[in-house]
Nucleic acid binder design. Structure first.
Length: 424
RNA sequence: GUGGCCGUAGCUCAACUGGUAGAGCGCCUGACUGUGGCUCAGGAGGUCGCGGGUUCAACCCCCGUCGGUCACCCCA
């Protein structure tokens, strides 16, 4: 397949009927987000490289080896966005949004790019539905967002019982730094028992050792200090309030003290939702996010707290077990002209119906009625309009209800009304 | 980035562990000339992912490459 028709590895065409499932998810997502008072934000796909290096973090996997970075023609380094928060923050800061609006809720929907080893649920061009809230730091907004996500996934047709919500808190940056040192000290005592990955993380990000899947490392990690225990009263109380309010909203989120995030900007509450159903492989995290209370300020803005999430559209689609075909829109009417003259007469009729919002297909090829009805059937048309010499002569059109097998004689003037009546 | 498995018609797969490819579904056409879904009969469609090697001979063996997939890693 490495020919001139190949797509770039990990990047796919999306066509019907699959695209119908995409549209369904996108429409549902939009309506839920709009209901929660978010407005859409559209940012460029390409940004100057330092934006991601500074916000996502220099030592993160994403920045170190997954970004599509190249020199633009003028020599400046640019990067295809690997995630949506940094561009949103850039947009927020660049127009001093906090001066215009104390609380900003933005959502976005679009392709992200990460050069990873592709597998099921992990593409190089993948799509995220995401949102950011700037200017709020009450625990209730954290709970609101998580509950909204569960609600959105439910709207997609997933059962709440098939989702698992995990939450944790990373505390404030200074608390995190202290904890990191504590962990480093702890694991340093057990260096001999650590695998290579974990040893490497001892320097770069000791918190990641905690969610190692190596059983030996897990045994040691079980005795490691717990972040939550080391946090100050304020952080712990805040987290407790998030948990309580989540319960109020009917969400039973499980606290996982080992949950960490791979992007550096996160603070305080972080969360993840996994889907336990569908065709997801090991990549079953459907969405994740958290607070990033220092990012706006560190990007040159005011000290504005914020939080956000990213949801992987491909993964949501895999979790949804319904066939893509079932999301395909039905064809309302197939117009079958018997010959050139009939087609000439029928085309403007079809045009008017289409402009009236009815989904209509008309045969443009010279083919017999039998073939046309077969085609109508294939297209799952609800109705067929037969136009031939008889109809043109009598002025009575033949409108056939394909499912019922009943044919109706209709005057041209009554056509639209009759169609709407039969479609109900 | 590391390791395993896989790659044959549009789709799902088959071809005695070497002798130059088949089925089902789908698609097209027809079964007395203006009526579909069922049935029947025909038909089109494959450089066996690509390149190289071994061999008298390769879809089947070897190497490389591209793609997919699973696990690790990472994350949405």
């Amino acid at each position: 397949m490495a020919d001139q028709h190949a797509t770039v590895k990990g990047m796919n065409d999306i066509l019907s009927p699959e695209v119908s499932k995409w549209q369904f998810v996108e429409e549902k997502a939009r309506s839920v987000l709009e209901a929660f008072s978010y407005r859409e934000l559209r940012t460029p796909s390409l940004e100057y490289t330092p934006l991601f290096v500074r916000s996502v973090g220099e030592a993160t996997e994403v920045v170190e080896k997954q970004m599509y970075t190249f020199d633009d023609r003028d020599g400046s380094s640019v990067t295809l966005r690997p995630e949506g928060t940094a561009p949103a923050v850039r947009a927020y800061v660049s127009r001093s949004q906090w001066n215009r609006e104390p609380v900003t809720r933005w959502y976005y929907l679009g392709p992200m790019f990460r050069h990873e080893r592709a597998q099921r649920g992990r593409l190089r061009q993948f799509h995220q539905i995401g949102a950011e809230v700037f200017g709020l730091n009450a625990p209730s907004i954290d709970a609101e967002m998580i509950a909204m996500l569960v609600g959105m996934l439910t709207e997609f047709g997933l059962q709440a019982s098939d989702l698992s919500v995990t939450i944790n808190t990373l505390g404030e940056p200074d608390e995190r730094v202290a904890y990191r040192e504590a962990l480093r000290a702890f694991f340093s005592q057990h260096v001999d028992a650590l695998d290579d990955d974990s040893r490497r993380r001892l320097d770069t990000n000791p918190m990641r050792i905690l969610d190692s899947k190596n059983p030996d490392v897990q045994t040691i990690a079980a005795a490691a200090p717990i972040l939550l225990d080391t946090l100050g009263m304020a952080s712990r109380e805040r987290f407790e309030q998030v948990r309580t309010q989540l319960q109020t909203l009917g969400i039973d989120g499980e606290t996982d003290p080992r949950l960490v995030r791979g992007l550096d900007y996160y603070t305080a509450t972080i969360f993840e939702i996994k889907a336990k159903v569908g065709n997801l492989g090991s990549q079953n995290t459907v969405c994740g996010g958290g607070r990033y209370d220092r990012l706006v300020e560190s990007m040159g803005g005011a000290a504005i707290p914020a939080l956000g999430f990213g949801m992987g559209v491909e993964r949501v689609l895999l979790a949804m077990t319904e066939e893509a075909e079932s999301f395909e829109p039905a064809l309302s009417l197939f117009v079958a002209p018997m010959d050139e003259r009939a087609r000439l007469w029928a085309l403007p009729v079809a045009h008017r119906l289409r402009m009236a919002g009815i989904r209509v297909e008309i045969e443009h090829r010279d083919t017999g009625l039998k073939q046309q009805l077969k085609r109508a059937d294939k297209l799952k048309a609800r109705l067929a309009l037969i136009v031939g010499d008889n109809e043109l002569a009598s002025g009575k059109l033949a409108l056939k209800d394909l499912a019922a097998g009943k044919q109706h004689e209709v005057a041209a003037a009554d056509l639209e009304a009759k169609i709407r009546q039969l479609l109900d």
